[in-house]
Write a protein that binds this DNA or RNA. Structure first.
Lengths: 140, 140
DNA sequence: CTGGATCCGAGATGATACTG
DNA sequence: CAGTATCATCTCGGATCCAG
């Protein structure tokens, strides 16, 4: 990385110069892009089919234009998302997954599916945990 | 969830009452706990073997006590991590994965491994992207 | 040693207005 | 429509001090 200064990137922040290297394996950054709040949703939506910007925004729901733009740019830079801007008026931009992106999305989806599947177990664990904690509080 | 008030939880914040339900599938929260900055590292370390608190802290490196505690509590509540506090002085607490946690950790590791493996491709994509952007800037 | 409680800054996210 | 820019907000995460 030769650029200096700051860049707004999805995930956690990054100062482009050196801070990232001295405390984090480089792949951790990609992992954070991919598992970021909106990164997960974008990848999974695009796994279904390509989307236009606003279309994607509606599909995800409750995401600001700014964050969606940022997320898409980050994923595009990492080579996971392909951006196809057609020079027409009004503007039309289609987003899709690259081959690399499809692999990433598949991994993410596997994790998401597992989570959804195991949700009942998690809920049960939570109730147990909360009940135990409540009793300890009552008994001081 | 019957508890009210706020709770510090790993991932993004959560107001325990209703805010989480009205805008997010519940499993998204678990997903965020698991893919959180420290959640990923904790799960992967514990996949190797059980650890004591300070031991885990050293193994991960560069994590504050606060965040490690928070992460472990969140994962424990979700039923992914088992906490074994021995009533001795000085205190000794061992952390390990539950069966559910081992499954989660395996998924996370799969994603992390994929990321590490594909890092060269990502780097190449980034260089291409940055070069293209630089030229567009130069040409205005 | 294992945390709990608190303060605080950096930065992530959102709302709004503006451009091509 | 697809963004960019700016401003306002919120909270994550680190540092510090304290307790059992």
């Amino acid at each position: 990385m030769t650029v200096s200064g700051k860049v707004e990137v999805v995930g956690r922040s990054e100062t482009v110069d050196a801070v990232d290297v001295e405390g984090m394996c480089p792949y951790r950054l990609v992992l954070e892009h991919v598992t970021s709040r909106w990164g997960v949703l974008v990848l999974m939506e695009l796994l279904v089919r390509p989307y236009r910007f606003s279309e994607l925004r509606r599909a995800i729901g409750r995401v600001s234009e700014k964050m969606l733009t940022q997320t898409l740019q980050t994923l595009e830079r990492d080579g996971l998302v392909h951006r196809d801007a057609k020079p027409v008026i009004p503007p039309r931009v289609d987003y899709s997954l690259t081959d690399l992106g499809r692999e990433a999305a598949a991994q993410v989806k596997a994790l998401a599916d597992w989570t959804a599947e195991r949700m009942p177990d998690v809920d049960r664990a939570r109730r147990t945990y909360d009940k135990a904690r409540a009793e300890r509080t009552r008994a001081q």
